[in-house]
Write a protein that binds this DNA or RNA. Structure first.
Lengths: 111, 111
DNA sequence: CCGTATCCCTTAAGATACTG
DNA sequence: CAGTATCTTAAGGGATACGG
C-alpha cells in the first residue's frame, strides 16, 4: 500500500491528511484538548509559544475540519469552550505513532 | 499516554516528530523513495507541484535527519541517487496511520 | 474574558534562468 | 543531470490595541 511503484495513489490520502494537520500547532492543540474541554486562554497557556493570533486561526481551521467543537456558554461574561470531536479523537492512532517515532528519532539522531 | 492532564510530556516527542516531517513535501518525498532509490529529476517528476528549489531544500533536510541517503555515482555525468534509510522506513507506521486517517477524513468532511 | 484588527517585519515559496 | 542564483510574491508570526 505504501510501497507501490509510482506513488500517486497513496499520496492523495496522505496529502489530505497533511493538509489538515499541517503546521506545528494543530496536533499540539489537539493533544491539549484530548483530555478535556478547555477555554481559549487555557489552551494558549498550555501550548507553549503560540500567539493568540495563531491559536485563533488554528482553532478555526480545526473547527472547519470538524476536529474541534466550539461552544459558547450563555453566561454574562464571554465563555467559550473548545473540545475535541470524535473525528478529532480518531487522530489518536496517528499521534501515538508520531509519539513513538519522535522518541525513536531522538535516539537515532539527537542521542 | 496521550490523555494526560497538562500535556507537556507527550508534546515533546510529538514536537520533535512534527519538526522533522513538517511541511507538505517531506512525507511525499519519502513515499516516493520508499519503493526504490531515485534520482533528483525522477523525484521532481513524481512529487507533483514541487519546485526544484523546494526539492533540493527538503532533500537536504531529510538527509540531515537521516531519513534519506544521498549517493553520488562516480560517473562522468552528474548522477545522484537518493534512497530511504532504515530510519526513514521506520516512519512507515506513521504514514500508514496517516493514510488511513486521510481516507476517513475524506468521508467525514468532504464526502 | 474571549477573542479580532492592524501594523510591520521576517520567512517561505514560486518562476525562471543559469552553471559545473 | 543536479542543482544554484535571483527576483518577486505569499504566508508566517510578534506586538499592541481595541470591541463584544
Amino acid at each position: 500500500m505504501l510501497t507501490d511503484d509510482g506513488c500517486p495513489k497513496n499520496m492523495l490520502a496522505i496529502k489530505d491528511a497533511i493538509e489538515v494537520i499541517d503546521g506545528k500547532w494543530k496536533l499540539l492543540i489537539l493533544i491539549c484538548l484530548s483530555a478535556e474541554s478547555k477555554r481559549f486562554n487555557q489552551v494558549a497557556k498550555e501550548v507553549e509559544g503560540i500567539s493568540d493570533k495563531m491559536l485563533s486561526k488554528e482553532l478555526k481551521a480545526l473547527e472547519l475540519n470538524k476536529l474541534v467543537k466550539r461552544d459558547v456558554a450563555d453566561t454574562s461574561a464571554a465563555t467559550v469552550e473548545y473540545s475535541i470531536t470524535e473525528h478529532g479523537k480518531s487522530l489518536g492512532k496517528v499521534m501515538k505513532e508520531l509519539y513513538k517515532w519522535g522518541l525513536e528519532h531522538r535516539k537515532v539522531v539527537i542521542g
